[in-house]
């Protein structure tokens, strides 16, 4: 086995391919409509998709250990609705405190999900399906049966999304900080690598002294934390809180991960890939009107894109396998 040059490794990697796709998409849309090619349009796009982008990181961890979490948008609604109501009825005023409360609620939700999955061995899809119902209903109960917390009720909290630091919206700073932390966490820390180890071979991880149950508990808790953060972001970006917000949005988050090359069976996926995946998901709704495609087509195009990405992936793999076989001398 020869050592691959770093150069070849870079160009052969999935992340590189995704980067090319992002640049191509960017170039095509900009060529058709130069309005797309601006700093503001990019930051707007990120801001509007902050929730998906941030939560994709948590989903990355969950999917790395071979799990899935479809309860996240219910967690988001519960935590977002909770601070919405607290602000509306003036129990709290401080923006930071609101964020902390939302994240605490999210973390607790995620912790419970993790407990059920790691301690009671409930398959993740079933457990999170149950919690999807439970948290959504709790969010609804918190809202006194469907009340909204509109922009006027949110006081200074909604300013978070419009405040800028060094020319960038606070929301974008949150995204950047999350991605930087996760990039280092996943690649350079022992705990980060343990997540990969558990997803790659849980049995082996157990033998080498990794507490698989605790790692699973941790990833779902992290997912919950990010869902809580997502709840606060959602409320501030859209300046409103309602109990049915982001219903079905978990599929967008999963799709971002899948497009970003995260494997459903665990062990494979990177933070960079997830970033590109989330970016591609974010560009679609933004690019369609610029390309004069009716917004009604948005979902169909999204779905087709996911399908095409996974199919192309399989076909490329098959071609590679075939070539490898042809190359074997006999």
């Amino acid at each position: 086995m020869k050592k691959k040059s770093a150069f070849r490794k870079l160009f052969g990697s999935r992340e590189f391919l995704l980067a090319v796709i992002v640049v191509l998409m960017f170039a095509i849309v900009s060529a058709v409509n130069p309005a797309f090619f601006s700093f503001k349009s990019v930051t707007d796009m990120m801001k509007n998709n902050a929730v998906t982008m941030v939560m994709a990181l948590g989903m990355l961890c969950v999917m790395l250990v071979g799990g899935i979490d479809i309860s996240i948008m219910s967690t988001l609604a519960l935590s977002g609705m909770s601070i919405g109501m607290l602000l509306k009825y003036e129990h709290i005023h401080n923006t930071l405190l609101a964020f902390v409360i939302a994240m605490a609620i999210g973390t607790l939700c995620g912790f419970l999900v993790g407990l059920v999955i790691s301690r009671a061995d409930v398959p993740p899809i079933i457990a999170t399906m149950g919690f999807m119902y439970i948290y959504r209903a709790m969010g609804y109960l918190v809202s006194h049966g469907g009340e909204w917390a509109g922009a006027s009720a949110l006081g200074t909290f909604k300013n978070f999304a419009t405040t800028k630091i060094l020319g960038l919206s606070c929301v974008i700073w949150v995204i950047i900080v999350c991605y930087v932390i996760f990039f280092f966490f996943m690649k350079w820390t022992r705990t980060g690598r343990k997540i990969y180890a558990v997803g790659s071979n849980a049995e082996a991880a157990e033998v080498s002294g990794i507490n698989v149950r605790n790692i699973k508990l941790m990833v779902f808790t992290v997912m919950g934390f990010l869902a809580g953060l997502g709840g606060a972001l959602q409320v501030s970006v859209y300046a409103s809180a309602m109990p049915d917000m982001q219903q079905g949005g978990e599929m967008d988050v999963i799709a971002a991960c899948v497009i970003g090359g995260v494997s459903m069976s665990g062990g494979r996926g990177t933070v960079i890939g997830t970033l590109f995946g989330a970016f591609i998901m974010a560009m679609i709704p933004k690019a369609l009107p610029l390309l004069r495609i009716d917004a009604l087509w948005q979902n169909t195009i999204k779905g087709v894109l996911i399908l095409v990405v996974v199919l192309v992936n399989v076909i490329l793999q098959r071609v590679a396998d075939r070539n490898a076989l042809k190359g074997r001398e006999m």
């Binding site: 690598r193 990969y196 071979n201 082996a204 990794i210 062990g267």
Partner: peptide
């Protein structure tokens, strides 16, 4: 008892990485 998705070095040092 290996991790197929990780590199050889990681497999060797899993649990006692050089930190």
């Amino acid at each position: 008892t290996s991790y197929p998705d990780l590199t050889v070095a990681e497999n060797i040092f899993m649990g006692h990485e050089i930190i």
